[in-house]
C-alpha cells in the first residue's frame, strides 16, 4: 500500500434500508395476496393470477425495447406500436404458411411453428427498426417534440401499409392445435397458451438480464443509459450501440406482437397503437430506461387488470392508470429510477 492510502468507512445497510430497496419487488406478491383476499376463491384467483402474469409478461416483451431505447437514446418512440402490429401480421402470414404444422396434433410441430413465426416477426421488425431509426429517428435526436410527431407519423404510415398488404379487416389468428384449451391445475382452469406465454416471457427477461448484467454489450448499454457522453469519451461509438438497441427493441416488439396476437386471437393494424397505452404505463411505472422496473411494472399491470376485470369490470380500464398515478406519487421517477448524467 502506498502512503496515499485512506481508510474506507464501510457501513452496512440496516434492515429498514434493505426493505425499502426491496419494496418495489415485493409489490408483486403483495398485489397477488391482496387479490387473493379480495377474490376469496383460490381456484378463481389462480386462474386470474396466471392470466395476469401471462398478460404482464407479454406487455413486458413489448415494453422492454421501448424503455431501453428511451433510456439509452432519449428517444420517445410513439412508433413502437407499429412494430407490434407488423410483428403480429408477419407472424400470421408465417403461421398460415405452416398450416400443416399448426393443425397437426404434434406438440413439437406446433411449438416449432410458433417459434418460427416469432423468429420471422422479429427478423422483419428488426429490419424495419433499422430503416425506422435511420430514416425517421436519426434526424430528430435531441428534439422530443419532433420525435413524437415523426414517430407518430411513422406509426400511421405503417398502419396504412398493413391495410394495403393484408387488407383493412380484422384477421382471426388461430392458435396451433395443442395450444388451444386449458389444463386443470389445483382445480383451476389455466389456458395452455398462457402457460407458454409465461415461459417465453420469463425466458426473455432472464436472457435480457444476463445480457445486461454479464456481457460487455450489456455493460455498455447500462453505462450509456446513465452517461452516453462518458461512454464516448472512453472510446466507444455509442451511435452504433444506439442502432443495435433500436433494432433489438423493434425485434422484441415484433415478437411481442405475435404473442399478443395469439393471445387475443384477432389482429388489426391498430392493435399496436392500442396496446401502446399499456406499454407506456408500464415503462413509466418501472422508471424510464429500467428493464427490471419494466418487468415489475408489467407484472403489476397484468395482475391488476385481471383482478379488477373480475372484481369491478367498470373500473378495469382506469385501474392501470390509477396504479401509475399512485406509484408516481410514491416514486416520481418510477419504481427503479435510472440516474442520468445530463
Amino acid at each position: 500500500m502506498s502512503d496515499t492510502a485512506i481508510r474506507p468507512r464501510i457501513e452496512q445497510a440496516g434492515l429498514a434500508d434493505r426493505l425499502t430497496a426491496a419494496l418495489p419487488i415485493l409489490l408483486v406478491p403483495m398485489l397477488a395476496l391482496l387479490g387473493f383476499a379480495a377474490i376469496g376463491d383460490a381456484t378463481t384467483w389462480l386462474t386470474l393470477t396466471v392470466a395476469g402474469l401471462a398478460m404482464g409478461l407479454m406487455i413486458f416483451v413489448m415494453a422492454s425495447g421501448l424503455t431501453v431505447v428511451f433510456g439509452l437514446m432519449d428517444v420517445i418512440n410513439f412508433g413502437h406500436g407499429a412494430f407490434v402490429s407488423v410483428g403480429a401480421f408477419v407472424g400470421f402470414t408465417a403461421l398460415a404458411w405452416m398450416g400443416g404444422w399448426t393443425a397437426s396434433p404434434s406438440v413439437v410441430l406446433n411449438l416449432a411453428a410458433v417459434f418460427l413465426a416469432i423468429c420471422a416477426a422479429a427478423l422483419v421488425t428488426g429490419a424495419m427498426g433499422y430503416a425506422f431509426e435511420r430514416v425517421i429517428v436519426m434526424p430528430v435526436y435531441g428534439h422530443h417534440l419532433k420525435q413524437i410527431l415523426v414517430t407518430m407519423g411513422g406509426l400511421i404510415v405503417t398502419q396504412q401499409l398493413i391495410h394495403v398488404i393484408w387488407g383493412p379487416d380484422a384477421i382471426h389468428l388461430a392458435r396451433p392445435e395443442t395450444l388451444r384449451g386449458s389444463v386443470i391445475v389445483a382445480g383451476a382452469a389455466i389456458e395452455k397458451y398462457r402457460i407458454m406465454a409465461v415461459g417465453i416471457g420469463l425466458a426473455l427477461f432472464l436472457a435480457m438480464r444476463y445480457v445486461l448484467r454479464s456481457t460487455r454489450i450489456g455493460l455498455l448499454v447500462r453505462a450509456g443509459v446513465e452517461n452516453g457522453e462518458m461512454v464516448e469519451a472512453l472510446g466507444y461509438r455509442i451511435k452504433r450501440l444506439f442502432l443495435m438497441v433500436f433494432i433489438a427493441g423493434s425485434a422484441l416488439a415484433g415478437l411481442g406482437g405475435v404473442m399478443w396476437g395469439l393471445y387475443q386471437e384477432t389482429i388489426t393494424a391498430h392493435m399496436g397503437s392500442e396496446i401502446l397505452v399499456l406499454v407506456f404505463i408500464v415503462v413509466i411505472i418501472g422508471g424510464l430506461g429500467s428493464v427490471e422496473g419494466c418487468f415489475i411494472g408489467a407484472l403489476l399491470v397484468g395482475l391488476l387488470s385481471n383482478y379488477t376485470a373480475f372484481l369491478a369490470p367498470k373500473i378495469a380500464l382506469v385501474s392501470t392508470i390509477g396504479l401509475m398515478v399512485v406509484i408516481l406519487m410514491w416514486r416520481p421517477q418510477g419504481l427503479f429510477p435510472v440516474v442520468k448524467a445530463k
Binding site: R222, V225, V339
Partner: peptide, 8 residues
C-alpha cells in the same frame, strides 16, 4: 462531474 457509472 467525474462521469462515474453509478449503476455499475
Amino acid at each position: 462531474d467525474m462521469g462515474i457509472f453509478t449503476d455499475l
